[in-house]
């Protein structure tokens, strides 16, 4: 099954990527080719197979390690905004959300 240019535009919108026209053309071709390759999985009947959603270590007590839910100190406001492109008084400032 191929992927149409309109599909690529829709995926880009979902992924919050403002692609250029050239990128959209290139990805239409390349994603079609990759999806064509993964269609190979349909050769297998997996009706009775359980999905493997995580790699629970099978060597030991197959349980993930757990800890008590204790309160611990976090990063703190000062460090949390230290890397922000546009911090203001300990907050993250962004362009307007509504009515832009």
């Amino acid at each position: 099954m191929g992927i149409a240019r309109a599909d690529v535009e829709k995926i880009a919108e979902l992924a919050r990527l403002e692609l250029t026209s050239e990128e959209t053309d290139l990805f239409t071709e390349q994603l079609s080719s990759i999806i064509g390759h993964v269609e190979k999985l349909n050769e297998l009947d997996t009706t009775d197979v359980q999905p493997m959603s995580h790699c629970a270590p099978a060597g030991g007590d197959s349980e993930y390690a757990k800890r008590d839910d204790q309160v611990r100190s976090g990063l703190g406001q000062e460090l949390a905004v230290e890397n922000a492109p546009d911090p203001e008084a300990g907050y993250f400032r962004v362009p307007r959300v509504i009515g832009g």
Partner: peptide, 27 residues
């Protein structure tokens, strides 16, 4: 706008292979 900032930041900030994989994964 916020949405345009997200989309433009990500288009300019990521390289081609990363974008390709984000697109495939989103699909």
């Amino acid at each position: 706008t916020l949405k345009a900032m997200y989309s433009r930041t990500r288009d300019q900030g990521f390289g081609a292979e990363v974008k390709r994989r984000i697109m495939l994964g989103t699909y």
